[in-house]
Each structure stands twice: as structure tokens, then as C-alpha cells.
Amino acid sequence: MLSKDEVKHIAALARVGISDKETEKYQKDISAVLDYFEKLKEVGTEAVKPIGHITGRENSTREDKAEDFENKKDVVKLFPESKDNYCKVKSVL
């Protein structure tokens, strides 16, 4: 079972705030799913190459050319906070 500190660490990595009550719930729920994953240990995979792309599609390239998105106005409108048509970001420190 994951410890409370491990759950809090994962939550911080995932940038999700969790209350103490939630920490206990996730401790239980996530551990239950992780236990279920143990099943995969039974499968021998030493010589197996992991899946890259499922239909085998190779790299898909295009010319590196900037294009104009028509509806900039509505994108700007979606910013929670903006200044002079720029998205305003919270202070980092």
C-alpha cells in the first residue's frame, strides 16, 4: 500500500491539490489498482519490443511553415486573465 506521503508526493507531481480526507481515499483506491497491475509480472516480455504506433504509421512530416489561426479573438477571450491580447500568467515565484 502507498504511504500517505507517497500519495501527497504524486499529487504534487500531478499538480493536483488534495485534502487529508482525499489522501486517505486515494491511498486506498490507487493502491488497489496498483495491486491489480501486479498481474502483468506473470508475462514474460524480455524479448518483446514495446508498441510505438499501433497501426505502424511512420513519421508524419510537413513543411515547417507557420500558419495563421483565423479565430484568434475567441482564443484570447478564453484566457482567464489577459493583458494587451496576451495571456497573463501568475507569478512563478
Binding site: 500531478a14 499538480r15 493536483v16 491539490g17 482525499e22 486515494y26 507569478s91 512563478v92
Partner: peptide, 27 residues
């Protein structure tokens, strides 16, 4: 600050199952 805005937005904006899967995947 930015970090705390992330935490709160995602804590209250997402439902329980979504948060669980995000944390599982992160792990």
C-alpha cells in the same frame, strides 16, 4: 503563486475519478 493556482484549480475543477487517473498515470 503559479504552483498554488495549479493545485487549487485542478483540485476543485476535476472530479474524483479524473484526479485518480491523473495520479495513477503520473505514478
Amino acid at each position: 503563486n503559479l504552483f498554488e493556482t495549479y493545485l487549487d484549480t485542478r483540485q476543485y475543477g476535476f472530479g474524483g475519478e479524473v484526479k485518480k487517473r491523473i495520479m495513477l498515470g503520473t505514478y
